[in-house]
Design a protein around this nucleic acid. Sequence first.
DNA 1: GATTGTGAAAGCGTTCACAGCC
DNA 2: GGCTGTGAACGCTTTCACAATC
Lengths: 234, 234
Amino acid sequence: MAGQRTRRRIPEATVARLPVYLRILSERFDAGVTSMSSDELAEFAGLNAAKVRKDLSYLGSYGTRGVGYDVEFLVYQIRRELGLTHDWPVVIVGAGNLGQALAGYNGFGDRGFPVGGIVDVDASKVGSVVGGVRVRHLDELAQVVQARGISIGVIATPGPAAQEAAEALVAAGVTSLLNFAPTVINVPPGISVRKVDLAVELQILSYYEQRRASAAPAAGLRAVPGERRRGATA
Amino acid sequence: MAGQRTRRRIPEATVARLPVYLRILSERFDAGVTSMSSDELAEFAGLNAAKVRKDLSYLGSYGTRGVGYDVEFLVYQIRRELGLTHDWPVVIVGAGNLGQALAGYNGFGDRGFPVGGIVDVDASKVGSVVGGVRVRHLDELAQVVQARGISIGVIATPGPAAQEAAEALVAAGVTSLLNFAPTVINVPPGISVRKVDLAVELQILSYYEQRRASAAPAAGLRAVPGERRRGATA
DNA sequence: GATTGTGAAAGCGTTCACAGCC
DNA sequence: GGCTGTGAACGCTTTCACAATC
């Protein structure tokens, strides 16, 4: 209503789903769809309609009963809520295999997270250009962060260097970290951390595979408890 | 007690943490540590001791009161529970930027998930070698899967091709999918899916950054609700 | 008639706190 | 005395179900 002050605290589980809704709604909008019901959106997101409605209700009462949600308006509201009304340049620490792949991956910049810098400790890597950005030395991190007003750091170092990278990033003024290293990092309060660990994901799949194998020694498929994204329909 | 038949159903949240414990315990074991308390393990994992104990209790009563856990034994038990007593070869669908990076990333094979094959629809990519594996055509997927006994598929295609990739994988006999495409995929019941979406992770961080900015217009740090990995100590 | 928005109920996961055991 | 293992309490998330609204 009056003064859209973003005061409601949105549950973390909902925050994690808003980007999914945003992607679907943007895609449908580009396809010419102007209105969607919670049922349709749920179908695309692999969720149920009640969850979609509850999630969207945290943004405000932006739907129309009997009709659904205006796609364009909802896209705008979610973008606003997620802080996606401007770009967030990121700095990547570590210019190895992974750092280079991330820098070269357009999905970053395309979605509002341009690579504002890459740093590494390895002198042989400094000066090379990956994904259109010149690799600089870790010592110049604070300079890069300040110059470009960066608040998000991506850790793409080997595991043992991750803590050091995190500390350098925080010292440079970065307040959010996306950690790809297979190590738990330790940060001061007030710093956000998200972790992506490929081996962990595979090991979780392994658990359910193994369980499937021992539960149905020679039979067909068994339902997997928990880990589902969507029911049947395939 | 008798007959360690892996019958307990382990909560999904715990399954997701077991790989973290495993990595820490393995690393400590290599460093010569033979025993650890739940307190120590919690410290390394950025969790609290009660959670660690509850998680480990799902494996069985493998600790010793007044002493702690035998590191080597616990490593063995977690590996067994996660089905990591043998390798799980994976097949990657999509030999673009990301697929190539994944194939070249040693962290896969090192942790028991060797790349058993890579396929793509693009004829210009078929035949090239990435990460020591020759790229084959999507049409040969079933053959690759059967030949190597693969149960885990990695989707590294562009978003629009992900559903097709998932269907091809399932048709070929794969029962677990790790999806890197920015699309929700639809699978039959009984198939496990995990999703890794870099843009989603960044957008979640953006939410908390934005919130921080609007909450403390010109002040220092504010605590971030939810998203934390560890308290102070830095 | 259709679909939202939301209290209330149910289900999970985390934390507490302490009995049990070394 | 130290540390595990676990019921019980708590809090967060999901689901239900229906009144409100178009």
